[in-house]
Amino acid sequence: MLKTNPLQPALQKEAEAQPNRQQERLSRAEALRERQERHLQLALTLAAPLLLLGIWEALSEMGILDPRFFPPPSRILMALWQMLLEGSLWQHVRISLIRILLGFLLGSVPGILVGLAIGLWKPVRALLSPLIAVLMPIPTMALVPLIMILFGIGELSKWVTIATSVFFPVAINTAAGVASIDAVYLEVARNFGASRLAFFTRIALPGALPVLFEGLQMGEAIALLTIVAAEMVAANSGIGYLIWSSYKTFQIPQMFVGLLAIAILGYVFSLLLRMLGRQLTRWR
């Protein structure tokens, strides 16, 4: 962030001119040791899943694990390859992806707005927080029949299902985030004449952001849970449907491909969310 002093290189050279070999050798040894440690850690991180897959492969080939229920990873990979070639995997992944993204937006945007309002204004808190406290414990899956009555059996009801499950943790964490803002910042805003809107966008929203993002992370995890469950009971497409229908038609390798797909999807989604969160709260 700071401009380096233009004199700096010259000064450094002068300092280095004094023989300081031992210092240099020591720091090089230190750097080497640090690098070795990092490499070892990376190797261990990679070793765990590879080893597990190796054992699985061997046990399944030897028949110690029943290959009908636990096909060797090589067969799962083959199934994956075939489904990629057919394009069926991409179709399921795409439809789930769209449902998750739309549902997530549909739930988190109102969640943030309602959370900010609850955090900022006491009357809104009195009005809404008991309602939310009562509705939140209902598992979203229990609402699926009602959602289908209200929104039909098409895509809309899937989006609404995800949105409902995302809304609550986001709203509650946003409200908690606003509550966590130091009171002096609210006084600063009032003293310098912040309007309602500026108060909302420049104080409450950025101040609540760290806790708000924890809510988004929770919402993301719950969205994943909900979409798979919803697709198992009330859909004919998507990753959840792929897993369930593969199981029912005894295409176990395909079922494992579905599990792999949801794992990767969840990992990438949460990674992106974390990166976005870190970018937006660089000031911390």
Binding site: V184, N191, L209
Partner: peptide
């Protein structure tokens, strides 16, 4: 002109700006 402006105790600077 604003009638008053306050210099707060230590924590008055907005950390996200």
């Amino acid at each position: 002109r604003p009638p008053t402006a306050m210099v707060f105790q230590e924590q008055g600077v907005l950390p996200w700006m």
